[in-house]
């Protein structure tokens, strides 16, 4: 990793500045796709089973 940008005791400058959670975004993207798919399929079931009032 590069040089620390700030000298701040207690703040891990090196780590906060350079860690980009792209793997997290990737996992969450899959998660969101799954939410849309599964939630959406239940929504479709609702629409297919007829209105209730």
């Amino acid at each position: 990793m590069d040089e620390p940008v700030m000298e701040t005791p207690g703040v891990d400058a090196e780590e906060t500045e350079h860690f980009k959670p792209i793997g997290t975004l990737f996992v969450l993207a899959i998660f969101v796709a799954t939410i849309i798919l599964l939630w959406g399929s239940v929504y479709v079931i609702l629409l297919s089973r007829g209105v209730t009032s």
Partner: peptide, 25 residues
């Protein structure tokens, strides 16, 4: 929570030498 916890784990996985989009897992 999903973001923060997964990101904390990703940070751990990368420190342990994991790389790439999913290697950290």
């Amino acid at each position: 929570t999903a973001f923060t916890v997964i990101a904390s784990l990703e940070y751990a996985g990368r420190r342990r030498g994991g790389t790439g989009l999913v290697g950290w897992i």
